[in-house]
Design a protein around this nucleic acid. Structure first.
Lengths: 148, 148
DNA sequence: TCTATTTAGATGCAAATGCATACACAAGCC
DNA sequence: GGCTTGTGTATGCATTTGCATCTAAATAGA
């Protein structure tokens, strides 16, 4: 019980929760206000677009994102239903498939980006100097487990 | 559209999302592993305990937490059903009520704290020096809207 | 080759969330 | 007092999440 964290630790923890909650909320809000899909969709679109023609496997996508497997599986369902990605059989491995972005998906990603970018800038960029943002990123990096 | 955020901003944003997701996940995981209720319950217990004998109004609680109104309403339902808080009629204002912690609630809060504290320390405290934690808290503070 | 184990992914079900709206009382105005 | 507007809280319904489990295919071992 003498593990009681230092005051600075507790404050950092509390503010980490609060800052991300507000930042995320305002970004999601901006997307919704613009009639666009939620943030998670953007990440999938970005990763699948980066992956090129062939697309990528769900488990690869899972690693790149902060989503549980079952969660991703259903997100892909929805996005496929919306026509932004498609599932293709995977020759190498009959268990899985490849997820590839469609033209509509590319269009949507381009449509989302300006809104997303502006929202990030409002939530983070405009509130910190370049130096502060760099420091913040650096410190937050310490809290992230590198699986690499 | 030339609002494209600076690299440092984007990195800070991405890491903010990732760091809190991991930190929160590990804290929630620690609570669950110890057979304890989730984090949100702790916050309610803490605030109601601080509020003293009379308890406090849901809208006050709402301000102290990161919860939407309807969400809090149902959280209180669950916690009342579990016997940790109780709703009492409010004489001043017939619309609302007061939420007060019970003895069982106080016991539960005390049971949760060591686990919570250790988890915060593992997720944040041990990864940063005191100075770094203070800086992180300071920078995160810039991202938080002060309604005060 | 045949079996056991592991891995990729989906899915049924229960719980939690978000949204819109309903409801009840309070407060201000005439 | 009646009427309108505002505020505090609950709730029905659809969507999303979490958990546990299931299937199918790959891989390892005998």
């Amino acid at each position: 019980m003498s593990d009681r964290p230092a005051e600075a630790t507790i404050q950092a923890w509390a503010r980490l929760m609060k800052a991300q909650s507000q930042a995320l909320g305002s970004v999601e809000g901006a997307l919704k206000a613009a009639g666009l899909p939620p943030l998670g969709w953007y990440d999938v679109l970005l990763e699948t677009e980066r992956a090129g023609r062939d697309g990528l496997r769900p488990f690869e996508l899972e690693r790149a994102m902060l989503l549980a497997q079952y969660n991703l599986s259903r997100l892909v369902d929805r996005m496929a239903a919306a026509g932004y990605v498609e599932r293709r059989p995977c020759v190498d491995d009959g268990r899985g498939h490849l997820i590839a972005i469609t033209d509509a998906g590319r269009v949507m990603r381009r449509r989302m980006w300006p809104v997303y970018a502006r929202a990030i800038d409002a939530a983070v960029g405009r509130r910190l100097s370049a130096r502060q943002a760099a420091t913040l990123g650096e410190l937050l990096g310490h809290l992230i487990d590198e699986p690499s």
